[in-house]
Design a protein around this nucleic acid. Structure first.
Lengths: 227, 227
DNA sequence: TGAAAGCAATGTTAATTAAGGTTAAAGGCG
DNA sequence: CGCCTTTAACCTTAATTAACATTGCTTTCA
C-alpha cells in the first residue's frame, strides 16, 4: 500500500509541483489549499504523515497541528515555511510538529525528511530473532554467548563472545589486531595487547574440536579466521 | 533516570557551553572531542540520543553515524554543522541521521529538536500501554507486580518488579549496572551494588522455569536479558 | 650468501585480583 | 508477626597480570 500524505499548501503553483513530484515517487498525496477542511479529510483518509504550510488562509499551520494532535497523537507532522526564526521553530515543535523545512527547499530534502519521519514513527523494534551462526561443526549464538558442538554447550564470557563475533563476522578475512583491541578494551596499550593473546588462546582451545577451524596469526596485522 | 546524550564536538568552547547548557536542563551529557572512541563509549553508556558534529578530526560525523547504526538501529542521531547544502543534508539522512541543525543554533532549538526526537523514538512503547508483557513462557504485569507461569502467580516486591521491568524493556540488549543502581537506589555505592546481586539472584530464581530466559552477566558493564 | 644471533610480536600457562553470586541471618516497618 | 530489604560471610568465575616459551623476520658477519 502506498504511503499517504496529507499536504496543505495554499500556493497553487508550488503545491502542484510538490504533489506531482511526490506522486512520482510513489506517494499518495491528498492536497488541501486551506485549513478549513483538514480535520475531516484527515479522519477520512487517515494519512501516514502530514505536510503543513504554516501561513495559510483562515487557519495557520500551528493551529491545524494542534487540532490534529488532539485527534491522533502519533502521526508525524512536517511544517513548511518561509519563516526562519528560532521562535517560529519552537512554536512549531510546541504545537506538535516533528520537523521544519524552509522554503525554498529541494524535493530531495523534503522526501528525505518524510522518509526519516516515517521510519522513526514506525520503529517497531527489537526482539530480533535469536540468530545462530554456524562455524564449522559449531553453532554460535552471539545473543546468549553460547558455543555448541554436538549438544555440548559452552558458555562464553562476554569478552570471549565479542571477540568470536568479530572474527566470525569477518571469516576468511583478516581482522586487525588494533580493531579488536579498540572494540574490546577501547585502547591498544601493551597490557591489553597481552590480554588479547590470552583470549585468542582460549578461543583456539574452545574451537579445537573442529580442526577445519583455524585462527591464523598474521604477525603485525591481526588474525585470519579460517573456517 | 536522566536522559543520556552522547555529544561529539571538537570545538572546546562551543562544546563546553552546550554541555553545560544541556546539563542545566537535567540531561546527562557525555562529551567526546573526536571520533576515535565513540563506539566504545556508546556501548558503555548506552545513550538515549546522539548529537554529532560533522566536521571532526579523524572520523567525520557521517562515518560515526553509520557505525552507530550498525550497532543500534534505533537511537536518534542529530547532526550539527555549519554546512548548509542540500547534498550534505541528504548525506546526513543517508548515513542514518534523523535531524540536522545548522550552526550557529540556539540552545532552545537544539533542546526542542532533542525532545522531539526522543518523543518520536519512544512512541511505540507509550502507545502499546500493554498491561502485560510476555517474557518467554511467563506473563509479567508490571502494574500489579505479578509474574505468571501456567496459572501460577508470583507476587514480586516493588524492587523486584522495577528491576524486571528495566531488563525486560531492554531485552536482548545490555542494561547498565549503573543505570539499574541509579534507578533502584539513586546511587551506585558499594553496598547497593552487593544488593543488586541479591536481586538478580532472586529474579534468576523466579525465571528458572523457562530455560530460554537468561540474565547474562557482562562483567564490569551490566546484564544482558536474553529471552 | 647464508647460518647464527638478535629481537619484536605473539603464544601458553598459571597466579592474582576484582567483580559478581549465593545463602542466610539481621534490620526495619506496617 | 510477616514481609521486604539490607548486611554479611563465604563462594565462584572472569579479567588481568606475570613469567616464561615460541615464532618468524631482520641483521650481521664469516
Amino acid at each position: 500500500m502506498k504511503t499517504k500524505i496529507l499536504y496543505v499548501e495554499d500556493e497553487p503553483f508550488l503545491g502542484r509541483i510538490v504533489k506531482e513530484s511526490l506522486e512520482s515517487r510513489d506517494f499518495e498525496v491528498n492536497m488541501l489549499t486551506d485549513g478549513n477542511d483538514v480535520l475531516q479529510q484527515f479522519e477520512k483518509i487517515n494519512p501516514d504523515i502530514c505536510v503543513l504550510d504554516i501561513m495559510l488562509p483562515v487557519k495557520d499551520g500551528y493551529t491545524i497541528a494542534r487540532e490534529l494532535r488532539k485527534v491522533k497523537a502519533t502521526v508525524p507532522i512536517i511544517f513548511v515555511t518561509a519563516k526562519v526564526q528560532t521562535e517560529d521553530l519552537l512554536k512549531g515543535f510546541e504545537s506538535g510538529g516533528n520537523d521544519y523545512i524552509r522554503k525554498p527547499f529541494s524535493m530531495e530534502e523534503l522526501i528525505a525528511r518524510i522518509n526519516n519521519l516515517l521510519q522513526l514513527s514506525q520503529r517497531p523494534k527489537s526482539i530480533s530473532a535469536a540468530e545462530v551462526t554456524v562455524i564449522g561443526k559449531y553453532e554460535f549464538n552471539p545473543q546468549r554467548y553460547e558455543l555448541k558442538i554436538e549438544d555440548k554447550v559452552k558458555k562464553l564470557s562476554s569478552r570471549e563472545a565479542t571477540l568470536l563475533t568479530m572474527l566470525s563476522e569477518n571469516r576468511n578475512a583478516t581482522t586487525n589486531r588494533k580493531d579488536i583491541l579498540m572494540k574490546l578494551w577501547g585502547d591498544d596499550s601493551f597490557f591489553n595487547s597481552r590480554n588479547l593473546d590470552v583470549y585468542i588462546t582460549k578461543l583456539r582451545d574452545y574451537l579445537k574440536d573442529d580442526p577445519s577451524i583455524e585462527i591464523i596469526t598474521i604477525k603485525g596485522v591481526g588474525y585470519h579466521f579460517a573456517v
